[in-house]
Computed example of a mutant assay.
Amino acid sequence: MSNLTDNVAALMREVAAREIMPRFRALAEGDVEEKSKGDLVTIADRASELWLTPRLEALVAGSHVLGEEAAAADPALLERLADDKALWTVDPVDGTGNFVAGRETFGVMVALVEKGETTHAWIYLPVAGELAVAERGAGAFWTSGGASAQLASGRAAPEFAEQSASFYVRFMPDEWRTSIEKHAEGIGRKESTLCSAVDYTSVALGRHDFVTYYRMLPWDHVPGTLILREAGGVVRDLETGLDYAPRTLKGPHLVARDEESWQRTAESIRAMRAHL
């Protein structure tokens, strides 16, 4: 792993210590707002993004940040995905609803996209102090309790009845939502953490078997996808069969811990859809 990997990890740890953890379970009145119905933002989200933005841009000459909160204020910033300049995606507090509720399932996510391809990714879980990092072609690594090890999720998932999965279908077209819900009836354990940082790292660690998503906002999916792929996993559109890319903003995507599991689950969901 490169010096860039270490430098960004250090920034993420610092911003969590400065702006996030002091506010965890200590949010004051007025520290939480609704960007839209059910979509919360806190002073921790905004302060973290503002702190990270200039520091990340200073690490790579000519780079820009595409942060969740800046894009919420100015959706035109998403157009930065279309050019080939180095672009940082930043989710300053992923799982904001959990953070507001005092639940520990939240994280900080950063990725570097160059010429439309993700080259580096980081996910930091501040409560546990755990970190996942990846560099394209160089593997993915997990640091916990001071020890670091390479991630390798690429082993076949168990049979459906023994699987653990998350189904996010809120934005799905009806035919995909219905077929995924039908498939879900045969899954052993269903849970929704409402936190991409936790979902992607859980699949990469082999704790979770798969996840479905439709709305693919870059700050939610770019970091986890590279980490999971470097660990042997798959993130692919169920309808087109195309692997997820940073410029993809929607589509029924299936996140799986290995190719065989992706194919088996996709076949089941597609069969359900064919019988609608």
Rank of each mutant, 00 (worst) to 15 (best):
L194M: 11
P158T: 05
F171S: 15
F210L: 13
E191H: 12
V203D: 04
P218F: 08
D209E: 09
D199Q: 10
Q163H: 00
D209C: 01
I187V: 15
T178I: 09
G206I: 02
F171Q: 14
L151D: 05
S164A: 06
L226I: 07
G186S: 10
E162Q: 13
S202L: 10
S192H: 07
V222S: 04
T143I: 07
L226H: 00
A157R: 03
L151R: 08
T225E: 14
E185H: 14
S192K: 13
W176D: 05
Y214I: 07
I187K: 03
M216T: 09
H208V: 02
H208C: 00
L205V: 04
C195S: 13
L205E: 08
G186H: 08
P158V: 00
G186Y: 10
K182D: 10
T201D: 03
E191N: 11
L226S: 09
T178M: 06
G154H: 10
G206P: 06
Y200R: 09
H208A: 00
A204V: 06
R189I: 01
L226W: 08
G186D: 02
K190C: 02
F210I: 02
G188M: 00
E191I: 14
A149M: 08
H208D: 01
T225P: 05
P218D: 12
G145P: 09
R177N: 01
V169S: 12
T178V: 11
S153G: 08
A147G: 01
W142G: 00
G206T: 06
A149T: 13
A197Y: 03
A197G: 15
E181I: 01
E175K: 10
D174V: 14
R155A: 11
I180F: 07
S196M: 15
A156D: 13
M172F: 15
L151N: 07
V198Q: 03
C195F: 09
V198N: 08
T225L: 03
R177H: 02
H208N: 04
S144G: 05
D220C: 02
Q150K: 15
R189H: 13
Y214E: 05
V222T: 12
K182Q: 14
G154C: 02
Y213R: 13
R170V: 13
L226G: 03
T143L: 06
M216E: 02
G206A: 03
E185Q: 14
G154N: 11
A147P: 01
A156P: 08
S164F: 03
T178D: 14
F171D: 15
Y214T: 04
S202C: 07
L217T: 15
K182E: 11
P173T: 01
V211I: 14
E181M: 13
A149C: 06
R215L: 15
H221K: 12
V169E: 03
G186V: 06
A147T: 13
E191W: 11
L151F: 07
R189M: 04
T193W: 09
G206Y: 01
T178C: 01
A161V: 06
W219C: 05
M172W: 00
